[in-house]
Design a protein around this nucleic acid. Structure first.
Lengths: 335, 335
DNA sequence: TTGAAAGCGCTAACAT
DNA sequence: ATGTTAGCGCTTTCAA
């Protein structure tokens, strides 16, 4: 029914009376074509409504101009803002993006990577809080370059783009400590994850130490990355007599804040909160969330730019890029 | 350097001593293979680490098991939740998703569709507030099936999945009118868009009429779809002496709400708001936003399911699916 | 500047 | 149950 019987390069060639090669050359902007024939070919392409078949091209050239993006969840603001940066730069370099949601399940992450490889993507950008051993193995088995965006591998061997989580967390701690808090909670994801154990926790402890405060393990909380998880964990936090919290995720921070307020506490007077992702969520609420400022769009964009270089076998001087973070003082902290 | 020299189907065949066809059969689960040879082939595949090349397969079979998704912006909660529904169902049916952001620019939408076509996608899901004539033409020129998700074409000719925007808007109006409001604003996007002119506005007027209220054009507002646009338009709304607003987008609604509160008005006492998308934004703020409840995930999921049928040339009884909406009474309305 | 020809890795009749 | 043989639509040497 819908057989549009698309014209092939062969149709164009025979119509003009040249060879496939010539048509291919003009389509691909090769300079070695006489201007007059080029015109004729272009006309024929126009008349026939010829559109190159990217699949055939991909098979012949072994380049698909497609990259894969593996991410936890498109509906997670943090990651979707990274994805936007990736996508914009990808388009700029004429790559298409094959998107996969994994919900941070290592099994699905592995499958996604393998699947992308079989689709012959030219490169992959991986996002996720933790790099499972199996996933790491899969990544190294793939022959397309892989760049991590907003994600860390414990061994720091993969190309990646991040902020300095240690410094950022330390500063956050110092800020609330300066406001007089002596019991500051740290809310992150699972402590087995490198980003939590080797970065956020380290920064947290460094901040405490700089302030001369003792580290208390009871003030460590692991939470899922959504609003209700934050809401649910909030009473446990309050039960420790903590009066401030550094939180890894904006939705979690909002859950905590709303629980506190539903309990009649006020934020920031009774409880200060600093969140870490600075998504739209942090701006839209009242009080707005004080947050570590992450250049999310740029993290994605820089990661993608780096991937283009890797795909072209260009030299990349710095494989582990650290982008500057900021501090967005808003309503959930005093001063 | 990274030449993993991937094994081809030919390598597998010669290793086992069978033909390409046989290997192809076991890879594709064709039953016409003796169990013993099947085993041998599987072993060889394992040993050689053979992974089928999806590009070659796509060229030969004329199916890429890839669909295209054209959407305004991944960082827009409304669309990203639709996208999640699409992606989950796509994976269920073993399709991969090629994602493109268009920012609702018809030029980019057209380019995206053409590009997806050249990548030989098996189908496309399109999302956007308005279907430009040019885009519509492009869609019909593509020989892959296209389904609209959460999007309406004025002529109602394309397959689509939506809620009943007229009824939903009417109900929203009736609700605030019942609360005693006599000046209810309608905040949507551009009035030239079919979804606004033929649906939301019609529902709004119907609600007014049912309540015996006059329609006042001054109460119509067109806004961009983001928080600051809402914040900026809010004073104009208040200047009309409106005491309630039906808003098309949660971020816009939040902008309006925060402006009102920053001006010392309280919501909902001084001003009631009903939003339309029921995203996470509506739940996370205080007060939480009363909203028309849209089955966003399902809209995406059903659209994708429909697309699978279309791609298989199955009969689809209902090409314009209307999913039921609900009403989520929260904190920005009284009663 | 242009053409000829050999694939790219796989599927899909058609035979056997 | 298995093999043979054409392609799929394009790129890419290598010649001319």
């Amino acid at each position: 029914m819908q057989k549009k019987q698309t014209a092939t390069i062969y149709d164009v060639a025979s119509r003009v009376g040249v060879s496939l090669a010539t048509v291919s050359r003009v389509v691909n902007g090769n300079s070695n074509v006489r201007e007059s024939t080029k015109r004729k070919v272009l006309d024929a392409i126009e008349e026939l409504g010829y559109h190159p078949n990217a699949v055939a091209r991909g098979l012949a050239s072994k380049k698909t101009t497609t990259i894969g993006v593996v991410m936890p969840d498109v509906t997670d603001m943090y990651y979707s803002e990274l994805a936007r940066g990736i996508d914009d730069v990808a388009n700029m370099y004429h790559y298409d993006v094959l998107l996969t949601n994994t919900d941070e399940d290592p099994v699905r992450e592995t499958m996604a990577i393998n699947n992308l490889a079989s689709k012959q993507v030219d490169g992959i950008i991986f996002m996720g809080n933790e790099l499972d051993r199996e996933v790491l193995k899969t990544i190294s088995s793939v022959d397309a370059p892989v760049v991590l965006a907003g994600s860390i591998d414990a061994e720091k061997v993969l190309p990646s783009v991040n902020i300095d989580y240690i410094a950022a967390t330390k500063e956050a701690v110092e800020m609330v400590v300066k406001n007089g808090h002596e019991r500051v909670a740290l809310v992150t994801g699972p402590m087995e994850y490198a980003i939590n154990k080797q970065h956020r926790l380290v920064g947290y402890q460094a901040g405490l130490e700089a302030a001369g405060q003792e580290f208390d393990e009871d003030l460590l909380f692991a939470s899922h990355q959504d609003y209700s998880a934050g809401y649910q964990i909030a009473d446990k936090i309050f039960a420790t007599n903590a009066t401030a919290a550094i939180v890894h995720d904006d939705e979690v921070a909002l859950g905590i804040m709303n629980f506190m307020r539903d309990q009649g506490k006020s934020v920031p007077e009774d409880f200060e909160i600093i969140t870490s992702n600075d998504t739209k969520f942090a701006i839209v609420t009242r009080p707005a969330l004080t947050s570590i400022g992450q250049p999310k769009y740029d993290i994605g964009a820089v990661a993608m730019r780096m991937l283009t270089k890797l795909m072209n076998n260009e030299v990349v001087d710095n494989m582990q890029v650290t982008l500057p973070h900021t501090f967005e003082k808003r309503g959930t902290t005093i001063n």
